[in-house]
Nucleic acid binder design. Sequence first.
DNA 1: GTAACGTACAACCAAATGGTTGTAGATGGG
DNA 2: CCCATCTACAACCATTTGGTTGTACGTTAC
Lengths: 122, 122
Amino acid sequence: MVVDGLDEADRAVDRLFHALADATRRDMLRRCGRGELSVSRLAAAYPMSFAAVQKHVTVLERAGLVTKERRGREQLVRTDPDAVARARRALDALESAWRARVDRMTGLLSEEEGGQEAPDTG
Amino acid sequence: MVVDGLDEADRAVDRLFHALADATRRDMLRRCGRGELSVSRLAAAYPMSFAAVQKHVTVLERAGLVTKERRGREQLVRTDPDAVARARRALDALESAWRARVDRMTGLLSEEEGGQEAPDTG
DNA sequence: GTAACGTACAACCAAATGGTTGTAGATGGG
DNA sequence: CCCATCTACAACCATTTGGTTGTACGTTAC
Protein backbone atom coordinates (compact mmCIF):
# COMPACT_ATOMS: atom_id res chain seq x y z
CA MET A 1 0.00 0.00 0.00
CA VAL A 2 2.99 2.31 0.17
CA VAL A 3 1.57 4.91 2.49
CA ASP A 4 3.42 8.11 1.88
CA GLY A 5 0.90 10.89 2.25
CA LEU A 6 0.33 10.31 5.94
CA ASP A 7 2.07 11.96 8.81
CA GLU A 8 3.45 10.07 11.75
CA ALA A 9 0.43 10.84 13.92
CA ASP A 10 -1.85 9.15 11.43
CA ARG A 11 0.41 6.16 11.24
CA ALA A 12 0.51 5.95 15.02
CA VAL A 13 -3.28 5.81 15.12
CA ASP A 14 -3.19 3.17 12.39
CA ARG A 15 -0.87 1.04 14.49
CA LEU A 16 -2.92 1.59 17.61
CA PHE A 17 -6.23 0.47 16.14
CA HIS A 18 -4.64 -2.26 14.09
CA ALA A 19 -3.11 -3.72 17.23
CA LEU A 20 -6.50 -3.64 18.92
CA ALA A 21 -8.20 -5.33 15.99
CA ASP A 22 -7.23 -8.83 17.02
CA ALA A 23 -8.81 -10.88 19.78
CA THR A 24 -5.56 -12.59 20.72
CA ARG A 25 -3.81 -9.27 21.17
CA ARG A 26 -6.69 -7.83 23.17
CA ASP A 27 -6.50 -10.86 25.41
CA MET A 28 -2.78 -10.25 25.83
CA LEU A 29 -3.50 -6.72 26.98
CA ARG A 30 -5.86 -8.10 29.60
CA ARG A 31 -3.34 -10.64 30.78
CA CYS A 32 -0.45 -8.22 30.88
CA GLY A 33 -2.28 -5.57 32.83
CA ARG A 34 -0.64 -6.73 35.98
CA GLY A 35 2.70 -6.67 34.24
CA GLU A 36 5.51 -9.04 34.99
CA LEU A 37 4.50 -11.63 32.44
CA SER A 38 7.32 -13.11 30.43
CA VAL A 39 6.81 -13.78 26.74
CA SER A 40 7.18 -17.51 27.33
CA ARG A 41 4.62 -17.50 30.09
CA LEU A 42 2.30 -15.51 27.87
CA ALA A 43 2.89 -17.89 24.98
CA ALA A 44 1.84 -20.83 27.13
CA ALA A 45 -1.65 -19.36 27.24
CA TYR A 46 -2.27 -19.53 23.50
CA PRO A 47 -2.60 -22.35 21.03
CA MET A 48 0.14 -21.03 18.77
CA SER A 49 3.89 -21.04 18.54
CA PHE A 50 6.20 -18.94 20.64
CA ALA A 51 7.30 -17.05 17.54
CA ALA A 52 3.71 -16.13 16.71
CA VAL A 53 3.21 -14.77 20.21
CA GLN A 54 6.43 -12.83 19.86
CA LYS A 55 5.07 -11.20 16.73
CA HIS A 56 1.86 -10.22 18.46
CA VAL A 57 3.83 -8.68 21.31
CA THR A 58 5.89 -6.74 18.78
CA VAL A 59 2.72 -5.38 17.20
CA LEU A 60 1.43 -4.32 20.61
CA GLU A 61 4.76 -2.75 21.47
CA ARG A 62 5.01 -0.76 18.26
CA ALA A 63 1.49 0.48 18.89
CA GLY A 64 2.59 1.69 22.30
CA LEU A 65 0.14 -0.60 24.06
CA VAL A 66 2.72 -2.59 25.99
CA THR A 67 6.28 -2.15 27.13
CA LYS A 68 8.94 -4.82 27.47
CA GLU A 69 11.49 -4.93 30.21
CA ARG A 70 14.40 -7.30 30.48
CA ARG A 71 14.87 -9.26 33.65
CA GLY A 72 17.65 -11.73 33.31
CA ARG A 73 16.94 -13.93 30.36
CA GLU A 74 13.26 -13.13 30.44
CA GLN A 75 11.44 -10.29 28.76
CA LEU A 76 8.60 -9.02 30.90
CA VAL A 77 5.59 -7.59 29.11
CA ARG A 78 3.21 -5.18 30.70
CA THR A 79 0.28 -3.21 29.39
CA ASP A 80 0.86 0.52 29.34
CA PRO A 81 -1.68 2.07 31.72
CA ASP A 82 -1.96 5.10 29.45
CA ALA A 83 -2.67 3.02 26.39
CA VAL A 84 -6.43 3.09 26.59
CA ALA A 85 -6.33 6.78 27.31
CA ARG A 86 -4.44 7.27 24.07
CA ALA A 87 -6.92 5.17 22.13
CA ARG A 88 -9.75 7.10 23.69
CA ARG A 89 -8.15 10.36 22.71
CA ALA A 90 -7.91 9.14 19.13
CA LEU A 91 -11.60 8.29 19.18
CA ASP A 92 -12.46 11.63 20.73
CA ALA A 93 -10.55 13.48 18.06
CA LEU A 94 -12.43 11.56 15.42
CA GLU A 95 -15.75 12.17 17.02
CA SER A 96 -15.28 15.86 17.63
CA ALA A 97 -14.14 16.30 14.05
CA TRP A 98 -17.33 14.91 12.68
CA ARG A 99 -19.54 16.37 15.38
CA ALA A 100 -18.21 19.78 14.49
CA ARG A 101 -19.52 19.26 10.99
CA VAL A 102 -22.82 17.89 12.20
CA ASP A 103 -23.11 20.75 14.64
CA ARG A 104 -22.89 23.38 11.99
CA MET A 105 -26.01 22.04 10.39
CA THR A 106 -27.97 20.25 13.07
CA GLY A 107 -31.13 22.17 12.32
CA LEU A 108 -30.91 23.24 8.79
CA LEU A 109 -30.39 20.15 6.75
CA SER A 110 -34.00 19.09 6.42
CA GLU A 111 -34.45 18.89 2.67
CA GLU A 112 -31.06 20.28 1.81
CA GLU A 113 -29.56 17.34 0.10
CA GLY A 114 -26.11 18.31 -0.85
CA GLY A 115 -26.44 22.03 -1.22
CA GLN A 116 -23.14 23.42 -0.03
CA GLU A 117 -20.78 20.55 0.14
CA ALA A 118 -17.45 21.06 -1.44
CA PRO A 119 -15.21 18.02 -1.23
CA ASP A 120 -12.50 20.20 -2.60
CA THR A 121 -9.73 17.69 -2.69
CA GLY A 122 -9.29 17.28 -6.35
CA MET B 1 -6.70 -17.39 9.20
CA VAL B 2 -10.00 -19.14 9.58
CA VAL B 3 -10.94 -17.82 12.98
CA ASP B 4 -13.40 -20.23 14.47
CA GLY B 5 -12.85 -20.12 18.19
CA LEU B 6 -14.18 -16.60 18.55
CA ASP B 7 -17.70 -15.57 19.26
CA GLU B 8 -19.53 -12.96 17.27
CA ALA B 9 -18.89 -10.23 19.83
CA ASP B 10 -15.15 -10.68 19.45
CA ARG B 11 -15.44 -10.60 15.69
CA ALA B 12 -17.53 -7.44 15.87
CA VAL B 13 -14.79 -5.75 17.89
CA ASP B 14 -12.24 -7.01 15.37
CA ARG B 15 -14.20 -5.40 12.54
CA LEU B 16 -14.69 -2.20 14.50
CA PHE B 17 -11.03 -1.61 15.26
CA HIS B 18 -9.89 -2.88 11.90
CA ALA B 19 -12.15 -0.37 10.20
CA LEU B 20 -10.70 2.40 12.34
CA ALA B 21 -7.13 1.35 11.58
CA ASP B 22 -6.96 3.16 8.25
CA ALA B 23 -6.52 6.88 7.76
CA THR B 24 -8.68 6.96 4.65
CA ARG B 25 -11.57 5.32 6.45
CA ARG B 26 -11.20 7.60 9.46
CA ASP B 27 -11.36 10.54 7.11
CA MET B 28 -14.50 9.12 5.57
CA LEU B 29 -16.09 8.98 9.00
CA ARG B 30 -15.31 12.65 9.48
CA ARG B 31 -16.71 13.59 6.11
CA CYS B 32 -19.86 11.53 6.46
CA GLY B 33 -20.77 12.77 9.89
CA ARG B 34 -22.07 16.02 8.66
CA GLY B 35 -24.69 14.64 6.36
CA GLU B 36 -25.30 12.17 3.70
CA LEU B 37 -22.68 11.97 1.04
CA SER B 38 -23.10 9.77 -1.95
CA VAL B 39 -20.39 7.24 -2.61
CA SER B 40 -19.45 9.00 -5.83
CA ARG B 41 -19.11 12.32 -4.12
CA LEU B 42 -17.08 10.71 -1.39
CA ALA B 43 -14.92 9.01 -3.98
CA ALA B 44 -14.15 12.35 -5.59
CA ALA B 45 -12.32 13.31 -2.41
CA TYR B 46 -9.71 10.56 -2.61
CA PRO B 47 -6.94 9.74 -5.03
CA MET B 48 -8.18 6.26 -5.70
CA SER B 49 -10.73 4.51 -7.83
CA PHE B 50 -14.44 4.49 -7.17
CA ALA B 51 -14.29 0.75 -6.56
CA ALA B 52 -11.61 1.19 -3.89
CA VAL B 53 -13.78 3.75 -2.11
CA GLN B 54 -16.70 1.38 -2.35
CA LYS B 55 -14.65 -1.27 -0.59
CA HIS B 56 -13.71 1.12 2.19
CA VAL B 57 -17.34 2.03 2.68
CA THR B 58 -18.22 -1.65 2.85
CA VAL B 59 -15.63 -2.17 5.57
CA LEU B 60 -17.05 0.76 7.52
CA GLU B 61 -20.56 -0.53 7.05
CA ARG B 62 -19.77 -4.06 8.18
CA ALA B 63 -18.11 -2.54 11.25
CA GLY B 64 -21.33 -0.68 12.02
CA LEU B 65 -19.62 2.69 11.68
CA VAL B 66 -21.71 3.97 8.80
CA THR B 67 -25.07 3.24 7.28
CA LYS B 68 -26.05 3.43 3.64
CA GLU B 69 -29.38 4.65 2.40
CA ARG B 70 -30.62 4.59 -1.15
CA ARG B 71 -31.92 7.73 -2.68
CA GLY B 72 -32.68 7.30 -6.30
CA ARG B 73 -29.59 6.07 -8.01
CA GLU B 74 -27.34 7.34 -5.27
CA GLN B 75 -26.27 5.60 -2.12
CA LEU B 76 -25.99 8.02 0.76
CA VAL B 77 -23.42 7.25 3.42
CA ARG B 78 -23.63 8.61 6.92
CA THR B 79 -21.60 8.01 10.03
CA ASP B 80 -23.54 6.28 12.78
CA PRO B 81 -23.72 8.69 15.72
CA ASP B 82 -23.45 5.78 18.14
CA ALA B 83 -20.37 4.38 16.49
CA VAL B 84 -17.80 6.05 18.67
CA ALA B 85 -19.80 5.16 21.73
CA ARG B 86 -19.56 1.54 20.71
CA ALA B 87 -15.83 1.78 20.16
CA ARG B 88 -15.44 3.47 23.49
CA ARG B 89 -17.41 0.72 25.17
CA ALA B 90 -15.10 -1.83 23.62
CA LEU B 91 -12.12 0.05 25.02
CA ASP B 92 -13.76 0.33 28.42
CA ALA B 93 -14.47 -3.38 28.50
CA LEU B 94 -10.86 -4.05 27.68
CA GLU B 95 -9.57 -1.72 30.31
CA SER B 96 -11.86 -2.86 33.08
CA ALA B 97 -11.05 -6.47 32.26
CA TRP B 98 -7.40 -5.95 32.76
CA ARG B 99 -7.84 -3.73 35.77
CA ALA B 100 -10.04 -6.38 37.35
CA ARG B 101 -7.36 -8.91 36.64
CA VAL B 102 -4.75 -6.75 38.27
CA ASP B 103 -7.05 -6.29 41.15
CA ARG B 104 -8.21 -9.71 42.14
CA MET B 105 -5.17 -11.80 41.65
CA THR B 106 -1.50 -11.79 41.45
CA GLY B 107 -0.23 -15.29 41.76
CA LEU B 108 -2.57 -17.73 40.13
CA LEU B 109 -1.76 -17.15 36.50
CA SER B 110 0.77 -19.94 36.22
CA GLU B 111 -0.89 -22.83 34.45
CA GLU B 112 -3.68 -20.88 32.77
CA GLU B 113 -4.13 -22.34 29.37
CA GLY B 114 -6.78 -22.21 26.73
CA GLY B 115 -6.18 -18.59 25.95
CA GLN B 116 -9.01 -16.57 24.58
CA GLU B 117 -11.53 -19.35 24.86
CA ALA B 118 -12.17 -18.79 28.50
CA PRO B 119 -11.33 -15.34 29.74
CA ASP B 120 -13.67 -16.02 32.66
CA THR B 121 -14.52 -12.44 33.31
CA GLY B 122 -17.96 -13.06 34.56
C1' DG C 1 -35.49 5.63 -26.18
C1' DT C 2 -30.86 6.56 -25.40
C1' DA C 3 -27.11 8.44 -23.11
C1' DA C 4 -24.97 9.57 -18.90
C1' DC C 5 -24.62 8.76 -14.12
C1' DG C 6 -24.21 6.01 -9.83
C1' DT C 7 -23.62 1.68 -8.17
C1' DA C 8 -22.44 -3.32 -7.74
C1' DC C 9 -19.43 -6.88 -8.40
C1' DA C 10 -16.02 -10.05 -10.41
C1' DA C 11 -11.26 -10.98 -11.71
C1' DC C 12 -6.80 -9.93 -10.96
C1' DC C 13 -2.45 -8.30 -8.60
C1' DA C 14 1.15 -6.72 -5.04
C1' DA C 15 1.92 -6.28 -0.45
C1' DA C 16 0.87 -7.04 4.29
C1' DT C 17 -0.72 -10.34 7.97
C1' DG C 18 -0.57 -14.24 10.76
C1' DG C 19 1.00 -18.41 11.13
C1' DT C 20 4.83 -22.09 10.84
C1' DT C 21 9.73 -24.16 11.43
C1' DG C 22 14.48 -23.70 12.08
C1' DT C 23 18.64 -21.60 13.73
C1' DA C 24 21.40 -18.85 16.67
C1' DG C 25 22.64 -15.81 20.78
C1' DA C 26 22.23 -14.81 25.86
C1' DT C 27 21.40 -16.10 30.40
C1' DG C 28 21.04 -18.99 34.60
C1' DG C 29 21.39 -23.61 37.07
C1' DG C 30 23.65 -28.18 38.22
C1' DC D 1 31.70 -26.27 31.67
C1' DC D 2 27.47 -28.11 29.83
C1' DC D 3 22.78 -27.91 29.33
C1' DA D 4 18.24 -26.18 29.54
C1' DT D 5 15.59 -22.01 28.99
C1' DC D 6 14.24 -17.63 27.01
C1' DT D 7 14.54 -14.73 23.37
C1' DA D 8 15.48 -13.04 18.60
C1' DC D 9 15.12 -13.44 13.90
C1' DA D 10 15.10 -15.32 9.18
C1' DA D 11 12.79 -18.01 5.67
C1' DC D 12 8.75 -19.71 4.08
C1' DC D 13 3.65 -20.32 3.25
C1' DA D 14 -1.55 -19.35 2.98
C1' DT D 15 -4.84 -15.94 3.42
C1' DT D 16 -6.37 -11.27 3.65
C1' DT D 17 -6.10 -6.51 2.34
C1' DG D 18 -6.15 -2.68 -0.58
C1' DG D 19 -5.73 -1.40 -4.87
C1' DT D 20 -6.69 -1.81 -10.04
C1' DT D 21 -9.71 -2.54 -14.41
C1' DG D 22 -13.68 -4.15 -16.68
C1' DT D 23 -18.43 -5.27 -17.05
C1' DA D 24 -23.29 -5.20 -15.93
C1' DC D 25 -27.40 -3.07 -14.18
C1' DG D 26 -30.77 0.36 -12.32
C1' DT D 27 -32.00 5.27 -12.42
C1' DT D 28 -32.22 9.95 -14.03
C1' DA D 29 -31.90 13.41 -17.61
C1' DC D 30 -32.50 14.83 -22.30
